[in-house]
Design a protein around this nucleic acid. Sequence first.
DNA 1: GGATAGTGGAAAGTATTGCTATCCATATTA
DNA 2: TAATATGGATAGCAATACTTTCCACTATCC
Lengths: 209, 209
Amino acid sequence: MRIAELSRRTGVPIPTIKYYLREGLVPAGERTGPNQAQYGEAHVKRLKLARALVEIGGLSIASAREALRLMFSAGLSELDTIGKAQYAMTPAREYVEDEAWDEAVAEVDELIAKRGWQVKATNPARRTLADALATLRRLDQDDYFELLDSYAETAERLADTEIETVARRGDLDSVAEAVVVWTAVGDTVLASLRRLAQEDRSTRLLGNP
Amino acid sequence: MRIAELSRRTGVPIPTIKYYLREGLVPAGERTGPNQAQYGEAHVKRLKLARALVEIGGLSIASAREALRLMFSAGLSELDTIGKAQYAMTPAREYVEDEAWDEAVAEVDELIAKRGWQVKATNPARRTLADALATLRRLDQDDYFELLDSYAETAERLADTEIETVARRGDLDSVAEAVVVWTAVGDTVLASLRRLAQEDRSTRLLGNP
DNA sequence: GGATAGTGGAAAGTATTGCTATCCATATTA
DNA sequence: TAATATGGATAGCAATACTTTCCACTATCC
């Protein structure tokens, strides 16, 4: 198929497809002439996937490229690759390293140790979490921390279910795709459900006194 | 205090504070002369809060302003106000209304009914969730849906704990602040913890065979 | 009391991001 | 053979979140 059909099949405008090709989110088609190329089902799939990461997952173009590259290049024989792809999905930030930050970092380390989680020191989620906790400290929302355990418990249970489902997949490419989609879109699903449950709970507790 | 101290106390650069004042994220100081104004502790708090929403919560300036305005203007006597502030924190998107979308919307309605959640039809999280689910359908990640229940269960349990903690607060302003912080920063905390738990679980399952 | 630095506010400028639009030589299709 | 489409390069554009510059004025230090 050529670019018009690729666009029709995915709903992505042609100029955007060209942009994604330029940016390396989608591999080039097979050239058949000076201004002709063929795209296949793999391109359709890859394009949908890229769009999902950007639109639903909120990844930047650069992060999406990196995540996709890592998942679908190295053959995924090593666990490292999965980890690195996940790392690529956590956007880098700058951190204010004050007292609140030091305490938050210690708190994250403590939590990980307490849970017995095997997590590399380089996992960027450590810093993101520390940053969020430091912010809560600076806002004097310290009672928030009572909830941290229940959040961690929740995350653990989710991860168990998720890993189990992913592991059921047959081929490696399928696992790779699931991991990428999962990580990015799962955040949004979870956040939405939390909003809905919150509305329900606050309506029950405060709405009908 | 004047703007320099406000900047020192919060770590926010002066030009950014001026920008936030212009954009209405922070109320104006008390004027004492043609080019002088006084700021107080309330301004410090509000500025930190605004920063947290923007930096950690990832809200746009416009969303942050709307959320803050709703929480701290109307007196919060009505439950509606809390709901509206939460709604303001869910960014609007455009939706592709195809077959996958229709099915996803039905699925969301079904889930809410099944759970017995009391959620207004106008809650934007409904659409965000439907959008995410529709994306999963379009990516043929249908087995994802087996997990939806466990996600919902999780969200419900979280909301229970959260609501309970917020309700313990004394004054209304404190509740308002907690709700805003909670909603925005909680997403990040949860997402980070999920990443960490995922690394642990995949290491255990696949890493040491 | 005079130099120096800081202030609030307005307006214009800037860096980044994620697309769109235009062009063009060549291909395909009606 | 005429209209339309293609791939690719380049330039343009709108939105966002600041930064910079300017100004008349104020506060503060020597």
